[in-house]
Simulated assay, not measured.
Amino acid sequence: MTLPPSSGAVADALPSNWVDRRAPAAWRPYLRLARADRPIGAWLLFWPCAWSSALAAVASGAALPNLWHLALFAVGSVAMRGAGCTYNDLVDRDIDAKVARTRSRPLPSGQVTPKGAALLLAALLAVGLAVLLSLPPFAILVGLGSVVPVALYPFMKRITWWPQAMLGVCFGWGALMGWAAVFGRLDWAPVALHGAAFLWIIGYDTIYAHQDKEDDALVGIGSTALLFGDRTRPILAGFYAGAAGLLGVAVHLAGGGPIAYLGAATFAAHCAWQVARLDTADAGLCLRLFKSNSWAGALVFAFLCADVLLK
């Protein structure tokens, strides 16, 4: 069922999402602002954290990834994705009002005031801080290192063609966190894993950005979708190949077995499928391919866990 415009639903959210159908009406604008109606971003933020926890289990010989850490990363991913979107929308509300896909969001459409958004941001950051302080001391320090790139991200589209690279730094930070929480240090394995996540994120966010390229060009902001243009497919193939290669390097450095390498190969196959399917002129297909990356992330985690269990 398609919701009427008066419902306040966001244009690019599925009409069947739980926020628009079941959440109390007064909560809906704030839940939409935090993207609770579109959980894909929380999954994509979570998977590098989960990879890192599983890779640490591979390296340490543990029977399972640390379940407490995974639970913290899950809560933190939801809270910090919501905080990041709220902060980004506060910074970009004037731009979002000029873009067809985003002008129905709560801030540019007037459903939420900037003050209300700031209060939501403070609440979500408090949850994120509580999660961070529940981790071991070294992991807390590593987590604090993400503050600067997260703060800078919304401004990158105004000064560079590469906002996707800054997103790669931010969303890929979790690849360091699981290892740091287990070992109390960083090694080359999580650094390689962060590199894999970084390239993967540039790739899938380039696909996502192709939905907005005409509006972005009119507004005057940059993206890799505009920069790459008709060359997106071969460039995307390069980023995804680099991500799969660095994932394999991370598995090697952590002492992973054949099943972990099979996970890297399966990830590579999924990425190759995305490249083969891509049509940058089809916005709907771009969104579906972007969302499919949650499965790519899940595959890596599942194979790493299987490697741990079978050892």
Rank of each mutant, 00 (worst) to 15 (best):
Thr2Leu: 07
Ser6Met: 01
Ser6His: 11
Ser7His: 14
Ala13Asp: 15
Ser16Pro: 00
Val19Asn: 10
Asp20Leu: 09
Trp27His: 13
Pro29Ala: 09
Leu33Trp: 09
Arg38Leu: 10
Trp43Gly: 14
Ser52Leu: 09
Leu55Gln: 12
Ala57Trp: 06
Ser60Thr: 05
Ala63Glu: 13
Pro65Ser: 00
Met80Arg: 05
Gly82Thr: 05
Ala83Cys: 07
Asp89Thr: 09
Ile95Asp: 01
Val99Thr: 01
Arg103Leu: 01
Arg103Trp: 02
Val112Tyr: 03
Thr113Tyr: 04
Ala117Tyr: 00
Leu120Asp: 04
Ser134Met: 11
Pro136Trp: 06
Ala139Tyr: 06
Val147Gln: 04
Ala151Leu: 15
Tyr153Leu: 03
Met156Ala: 13
Trp162Pro: 14
Pro163Gly: 12
Ala165Pro: 05
Gly168Tyr: 10
Gly168Ala: 10
Phe171Ala: 08
Ala175Val: 11
Phe183Val: 08
Leu186Cys: 10
Pro190Ala: 13
His194Pro: 00
Gly195Cys: 11
Leu199Asn: 12
Thr206Ser: 07
Asp215Asn: 05
Ala217Cys: 02
Gly222Glu: 06
Gly222Thr: 08
Leu227Ala: 13
Gly242Thr: 09
His252Ile: 03
Leu262Arg: 14
Leu262Phe: 10
Ala264Cys: 09
Phe267Met: 11
Cys271Ile: 00
Gln274Asp: 13
Asp282His: 05
Cys286Glu: 03
Arg288Ala: 15
Lys291Gly: 06
Trp295Pro: 00
Trp295Leu: 15
Val300Leu: 14
Ala306Arg: 08
Ala306Cys: 12
